[in-house]
């Protein structure tokens, strides 16, 4: 009797709707959802950088600060990974004093607001372009001693052009050669960025998250659904388009109800679940 009871329970679990659950980093807490954490009071901002120890590169977070006359400012930043200085001096409003400085999106991390030394300036300049979702659209760029790198390159372009003009007395030739000199400097920083991509791309939060999600769909889901159909009525964020990419070769069902019984991918409490098709009735010889 007991053995039959256990067998029935196991059978029930196997035939139940609830099958698999996968934790995907809790989908991460997108910026703005976590509470801002106050990191400094009455902080001097002029000429200072923000040092943050953040475990994973590529995480979006906000920096808030409030001026003494209670004006609030906010900037969106991307973590570099590990302990790194963030050059807030590039923002014209990062000046004078702040009555309070907050971080949102990182939780409790070690931070400080301090004067950068030469090593910090070099670290800021050589921090590679992060590999994030917006990289394909626009780059964040570099700063050197708080000056945008492209502004410095424009200066190099101008100076080189002037030098060449003094020799050749031809504007078109001087502009061309001056540009090639400045562009060569850009090429060097681009190579450093590309080396950074190769070194860190697999370790940034967005790449890890996307990679894990793709693995789950391409592996677990594709294996379970094999020979069947699937549907994804509830997926509207990045998991939705990853699902449709990884399962593009598996028949999709737009009508999950009725006679068409697909496997369903659903989200509950920010976790992905794969639900099997509904039972089609008892098979002879089995009991509940």
């Amino acid at each position: 009797m007991k053995r039959r009871g256990l067998k029935s329970m196991g059978s029930f679990l196997l035939r139940s709707w609830f099958v698999l659950a996968v934790l995907l980093f809790g989908a991460g807490a997108p910026p703005g959802h976590a509470q801002p954490v106050r990191i400094a009071n009455d902080a001097v901002l002029d000429g200072n950088v923000l040092d943050i120890e953040a475990p994973l590169a590529g995480t979006r977070f906000f920096v808030y600060w409030e001026s003494p006359d209670r004006i609030r400012y906010r900037t969106l930043e991307i973590t570099h990974g590990g302990s790194a200085p963030y050059d807030m001096r590039k923002y014209p409003v990062w000046k004078d004093k702040a009555s309070a400085v907050f971080l949102e999106g990182l939780g409790e991390v070690r931070t400080s607001i301090r004067k950068p030394d030469l090593a910090d300036e070099w670290g800021i300049f050589t921090t590679p372009e992060p590999w994030i979702m917006s990289t394909v659209n626009a780059l964040l760029g570099h700063t050197l001693f708080s000056f945008p790198w492209e502004n410095l390159l424009a200066l190099v372009f101008l100076i080189s052009t002037a030098v060449f003009f003094s020799f050749y007395r031809r504007w078109f030739l001087s502009v061309t050669l001056g540009f090639l000199v400045a562009w060569s400097f850009l090429y060097v920083t681009t190579v450093a960025d590309e080396a950074g991509f190769l070194r860190y791309a697999g370790k940034t939060r967005p790449v890890l998250l996307i990679g894990k999600t793709k693995e789950w769909f391409a592996g677990t889901v594709a294996d379970r659904v094999k020979g069947g159909k699937w549907s994804d009525g509830q997926l509207s964020d990045f998991r939705g388009y990853i699902a449709r990419y990884e399962l593009a070769e598996v028949p999709f069902s737009a009508a999950p109800e009725g006679t068409d019984q697909p496997w369903r991918i659903v989200i509950r409490q920010n976790r992905l679940f794969l639900e099997p098709p509904a039972e089609r009735g008892e098979r002879p010889g089995e009991t509940r």
């Binding site: 590999w131 979702m133 394909v136 991509f197 190769l198 791309a201 697999g202 967005p206 790449v207 996307i210 990679g211 793709k214 990045f238 388009y241 990853i242 449709r244 990419y245 593009a248 070769e249 598996v250 028949p251 999709f252």
Partner: peptide, 30 residues
Amino acid sequence: LAVLWQTPLYFEDAMTHWSGRARSLFGGVN
């Protein structure tokens, strides 16, 4: 080549408009 070999397809539009549709076409069922 190193990026193509080491990293997964990553960007949204690539997984939807471009390679998403390409893979659907290749698979034939969707």
